[in-house]
């Protein structure tokens, strides 16, 4: 009996051809243990070596194989073919990002936004080594631990309609990462991050659509992180308003 197959429709864009992007269909074996990334690897290895896409770990850790599958941003290493049977399965590059080639997107904007939120432990003065390590209780860790699970896969940016409309928006992952450090008891960068993010391109651009948290493969809940950040931002604003330190 012939092996069952499923059709994968991949959006191809080859800038050297100067042509508009168009879908190209490939039939691949419909195996119960295959994910969409396996199907793309099969296409690349056996059908069409010109197909370009990013991937690395194949286990939901590296965050590089995010693509749009049937219009939804997902990690292709976690998207089983059988879930989409009988198909066809439509595979496109992550929405809201410029496309370099086929399924490869240009992510400099995202990387710049990550850097902008200072995603590291900021200290006013470095503690001398001889004073020992920073202590942190499990309760203090649990304040921000879920936000540390982000793998920078950018699915939340593709899911976020605000980022699609306003490319200047810092975006879900960067703001959740800012909160990850704001809530870390070793960090002292809260004021600096607030000055950078309590504005029209930071937390106040978020309109709480919530799609980022739906799309997140690691249950980071960026939407929740941003709402907590807004509460802190509003408290800060009222404090400065009342004490007349100026906005």
């Amino acid at each position: 009996m012939a092996e069952e197959t499923i059709t994968i429709e991949v959006l191809r864009y080859l800038p050297e051809n100067g042509a508009e992007p168009e879908f190209q269909s490939y039939d691949v074996p419909l195996r119960s243990d295959w994910v969409v990334l396996d199907a793309l690897n099969h296409i690349k290895d056996h059908i069409d070596g010109t197909l370009s896409y990013r991937w690395s770990c194949r286990m939901g850790v590296c965050g590089s194989c995010g693509m749009m599958i049937n219009g939804e941003p997902v990690l292709t290493c976690a998207a089983f073919l059988t879930k989409y049977a009988p198909g066809p399965i439509r595979v496109e590059p992550l929405a809201h990002f410029p496309v370099v080639r086929d399924l490869v997107t240009e992510v400099t904007d995202f990387v710049d936004k990550l850097k902008h939120v200072k995603p590291w432990v900021v200290r006013e003065e470095d503690k001398p080594l001889e004073e020992g390590e920073f202590k942190q209780t499990p309760a203090e860790l649990s304040d921000f631990k879920s936000y540390t699970m982000c793998i920078n896969c950018m699915l939340c940016y593709s899911a976020c309609p605000v980022y699609g409309l306003e490319p200047g928006f810092a975006g879900p992952a960067a703001l959740a990462l800012a909160q990850r450090y704001n809530l870390d008891n070793r960090d002292e960068g809260n004021d600096e991050r607030m000055a950078r993010l309590s504005n029209d391109e930071g937390i106040w651009s978020c309109t709480m659509v919530g799609e980022c948290s739906e799309a997140c493969p690691k249950d980071v809940d960026p939407a929740g992180a941003i709402q907590r950040y807004k509460l802190a931002g509003a408290a800060e604003w009222w404090k400065s308003f009342i004490t007349r330190k100026g906005k």
């Binding site: 309590s198 504005n199 029209d200 930071g202 807004k230 931002g233 009222w238 308003f241």
Partner: peptide, 14 residues
């Protein structure tokens, strides 16, 4: 980036 007065409106909204 200009400072936002959204904090005020968001407090009433929230």
């Amino acid at each position: 980036m200009k400072k936002s007065n959204d904090a005020f409106w968001w407090t009433l909204f929230g």
